[in-house]
Computed example of a mutant assay.
Amino acid sequence: MLLKVRMDTAASNEAIKQGALLRILEDTLQEVGAESAYFTVEDGCRTCYVFFDLADAAQMPKISRPFFMELGAKVYYVPVMNVEELHQGISAITPV
């Protein structure tokens, strides 16, 4: 799964001042068992991309909560495949 978090600038600035931003990010990365995480700016907003294995969609509200509540973020979930999964998926396609 790709978790994309686009943070509100004012809310994330305040979280930095309060020492909460890194805590929120580190807690989330640990909670989801992130395979990798990347941080950048998108459309002028602090943005992070977290890749992890989402075992149960029911986890999404809990994972999203600190981003919504503390960072005023927009949160997106996008299913993704690694190379091994891509090979399995393409192998399962019956030729037309």
Rank of each mutant, 00 (worst) to 15 (best):
V5Y: 03
F68K: 05
V83E: 11
L3I: 07
I16E: 12
E14Y: 03
E26T: 14
K74E: 15
C45Y: 01
E26K: 12
L86Y: 10
D8R: 07
R6L: 06
N13R: 12
D27V: 05
V83C: 08
L3H: 10
M81Q: 12
M7R: 07
Q59M: 11
D43I: 00
G72E: 05
C48R: 01
V96C: 12
V41A: 04
S91G: 11
E84R: 09
G89M: 08
A34N: 09
A10W: 11
S64N: 15
G33F: 08
Q30W: 05
T9H: 03
F39H: 12
E35D: 11
D27E: 15
A57V: 10
E14R: 13
M1C: 00
Y77F: 15
G72W: 05
P66K: 00
P95H: 09
F51E: 05
L29Q: 05
E35T: 13
E14A: 15
A20P: 00
P61W: 02
V75F: 06
A10K: 14
D27N: 15
E14Q: 15
F39S: 09
F51V: 10
T94W: 10
L86N: 09
A73L: 09
R65S: 03
K62M: 09
L54A: 03
N82Y: 11
G72Q: 08
G33T: 02
Y38F: 11
R23V: 14
E70N: 12
Q88L: 13
A34M: 05
E84L: 09
V32K: 06
V78M: 13
I93D: 10
I90C: 06
T47S: 04
S64A: 14
V5Q: 05
L21D: 06
M81Y: 13
R65Y: 03
V32M: 02
C45H: 04
R46P: 09
L2G: 00
L3Y: 07
A58V: 02
V50D: 00
L29F: 06
Q88G: 07
I16D: 08
P61A: 03
I24A: 07
E70F: 04
D56K: 02
G33L: 09
R23N: 09
F51Q: 01
S36D: 13
I63A: 02
N13Y: 04
V78L: 14
F52L: 00
N13I: 06
V5S: 03
D8I: 06
C48E: 11
F39D: 03
L71R: 07
E31L: 13
T94L: 15
T40Y: 10
D53G: 00
I93L: 15
D56C: 01
G72S: 01
D8Q: 08
A11G: 03
P95R: 11
G19V: 02
M60L: 08
F51W: 01
E26Y: 06
S64W: 10
A57K: 08
V78K: 07
P95I: 08
V80C: 12
A58K: 11
L86S: 11
A37F: 11
P79S: 14
C48D: 07
F68W: 12
M81L: 15
G33M: 09
I63W: 03
L2N: 05
E35H: 07
M81T: 10
P79T: 14
L3S: 03
Q30V: 08
